[in-house]
Amino acid sequence: MTTSIKKLPDFEQVLSGNGACGGCPSTMALRIVGKALGPNAIMLLTPSCAVASMGMTPKLAYNWPCINVTFATAGSSASGITHALEIMKEKGRLQGELPTVFSWVGDGGTYDIGFQALSAAAERNDNMIHFCYNNEAYSNTGVQRSGATPRGSFTTTTPTGKRQPKKNMTRLMLEHNIPYVATATVAYPGDLYDKVIKAKSIPGMKYIEILAPCYLGWQFDMPETVKMSRMAVRSGAWLLWEAENGRISFNSPSSLIISGKREAEPVNEYVMRQGRFTRLFKSAAAESRIAEMQADIDCEIAFMRERAKITT
């Protein structure tokens, strides 16, 4: 049972008047994450929208100690900090509970540029949480194609729509055999809160990926951020699951789609609302390219259904 909204704590870790766009899914998700992590945490940021929304010196919009690191080093920097904290604790220079070290990184810093360091940190099983807020493009620099961009999506570097399917990062992290992997999205805050609370209690490397529909990059109307995130889950384009020690369990409503109790909504409705796919609809081969996208989603659902049966 997910935590009810009314039971979420009162304190805010993301302060009002930050520099993010209106309707930004990153601050929306970070607020919920902040409620789960509490003030005793250290935040690492690679170049992303989250850094741009920190505000201007000498003011800071996030209520944590924040460290801005270079693009490729989210994993290795967090590793270094966790090791330093452990040694300080050992030497008696640090009293009380160790702070949670977490990185808040976009899909560029996770899928493409930061992958090597993240993979190495996962292999070392360092005690940290890596959050990837996935807006499926390099939105901070004006929407360029990234490894997370889905097939058919328009970006400034794929003007006719991306031809390749997206990389499946959550599954890659799952195969690193780390203690905890989860996916979440902004439309289900109770689910996200529970996953962060669980991740906080587990020692070792944790990876949580949050789908963040960026209205600027995806080209839909600004107030529909949460709606779009919900549509992604209902159409099966984004599955909500968590894996503790490689054991996958699905969360509602994705569990209903996986078990066959509810049909996934056709991808058309979800795709139609986004400006980044409109060129696709206007092209001559529109039907076959939408069929390709639907096939990608169906394939992923079928794969995850079977993958969940493997428990090691």
């Binding site: 009002s16 000498p58 003011k59």
Partner: peptide
């Protein structure tokens, strides 16, 4: 010492964007 401190309005009075 850290040169930025958590405060409301780090991006200015963002109500003027509305």
């Amino acid at each position: 010492q850290p040169i930025s401190w958590p405060t409301k309005g780090a991006g200015g009075d963002t109500g003027s964007w509305r």
